[in-house]
Simulated assay, not measured.
Amino acid sequence: MGNWDFDWERFSILRHKNSTEEEWKDLPSSALYWMLENSKQVFSISTLEGKIVFISQNVNKVYGYSKEEMLGKNRYEFIHEDDLHYFDTKVPPRENERIKLTYRMRHKEGHYIWTETYTSKLKENGIEYYVMVTSDITSKKDVENLLAQSEKLSVVGQLSAGIAHEIRNPLTSLKGFLNIMAASPNKIHPQYYQIMKEELEKIESITSELLYISKPQVDYRTEEKIGAILQDVCTLMQSQARLNNVTISLQESGYGNILLYCDKSQMKQVFINLIKNAIEIMEQGGTVYVKLKADTKKVMIDVIDEGPGVPIALIDKIKEPFFTTKENGTGLGLMVTNQLLEKHNGTLSVLQNEEGQGATFRVTLPII
């Protein structure tokens, strides 16, 4: 399978479902070329192994490379190394299955741009290949990242009162021990040092976690245990929960060691947003349950509250931008949560609790 010329006998991908092959053949070739070369989208065809056998001339407008520089190369040479695993697991295994991919491609100048690709596996004259239609969505991603960072900083600000309270308690203990040691310098018990060390470690743990989630997003993905992520988030949210007379119950049920391929900071933001919402909705206090269950392909994390529940009429609206039922809400929390999950090939669904009290926010993520 060599470099393909622009042959409508073989270039069946561009046929519209409601058009016949003969109708396409009757169009002037100059019009067809114009459509391809002036589109904002890049059209390409590759072998199943990734070798690029056709790419539209307008590729230089998106990637900076000429058509000749990309023909014959393997597409994996241009995909960001952190997105290779995602790309491999998402390309459609079955014929005519249409999949949307979001990943980074290297520009000729050396930087990476965010792209959105619709791809399908087709078969022509006994030969299987992937066809792709790709758009540059870097500007869209920049806006999404700004909104996510804004919401993240808003959450950090809202958590600050509870965190300050959480830090004040060990500081009070430390001050007390220092006063004892100053009053009786010759009668310092060894256990004082151990208690003081533990109190300092509490402060370090809380402040480190707060600083970690405050950092700008870089989309750095690694293999992470879902249980460790949830434990860190629940530890951070304990102070907020106590201020609202709420208990957080994490129930891993043996699934805590399941591995995700994810950006840890973004995953933590997802569960911080969900647990924070659950705490705030329970005005009379109660318990937030965080439960895990899984099958061979995915893990499901349920954040369950004991609040009034979500009205059926609002279930489809709560993930929309700037929609909020809170007096001082931004309306960005669940929108950002949903976007972060989509970036990780995950989903967010809202369920009414069977008992008729409260709601369940279910996160579903693919496992390694």
Rank of each mutant, 00 (worst) to 15 (best):
D316A: 13
E144Y: 08
Y118P: 01
T360K: 08
G286A: 05
Y261L: 05
G162M: 12
S135V: 10
K264D: 05
D142I: 09
V350G: 01
D232E: 05
G157Q: 09
F322K: 03
F87N: 12
G358D: 03
I304K: 06
L14G: 10
E37P: 11
K152A: 12
T115K: 07
T119P: 00
I167Y: 09
G64Y: 13
L32R: 07
T20C: 00
S349R: 04
G162F: 04
S184K: 15
E224R: 12
P28T: 01
S66P: 04
I226D: 01
F271W: 10
K293M: 01
T207I: 11
R168F: 13
I13C: 11
K264M: 07
Y212E: 06
H80K: 14
T138V: 06
H80L: 12
K326I: 10
V155D: 12
A278R: 02
D142V: 08
Y86A: 11
K264Y: 04
A164C: 08
V131K: 00
N60W: 07
E198Q: 08
R10V: 10
E37F: 06
R75K: 11
Y212A: 03
M181G: 05
A182L: 11
R104I: 05
S19T: 02
L274K: 11
S12G: 09
V363Q: 10
G356D: 11
